[in-house]
Amino acid sequence: MDKIIVEVCAGTHCTMMGAMNIMDAVASLSEIRKDMEPCCEVEVRPIKCMDLCKNGSQGPFVTVNGALVERAESDAVMAAIMQHCSGHRKAGE
């Protein structure tokens, strides 16, 4: 089974801009997706500040298998997860 790792920055800026809500939303939506596409497992984890907000970029910052999503919202993160899901890609072909 593929594992998709979603890392959510839990620094002050990102938390204030809704990082925790993204974590909750992605975790709960991933539960539903697991039934639809059992090929992938999504693991959501908070990580320490990525320091990206210091250079003027806007959070929340989320990486999906290492690919960065800036100004993340839960739907953008879910879209990135679906791109990384092999079963979903095949179904779309």
Binding site: M16, M17, A25
Partner: peptide
């Protein structure tokens, strides 16, 4: 309990 653009705007105003 749902993070919407309203929450975001409110927090941005407080941040300023």
């Amino acid at each position: 309990g749902i993070f919407t653009p309203i929450t975001k705007i409110r927090r941005q105003v407080f941040t300023e």
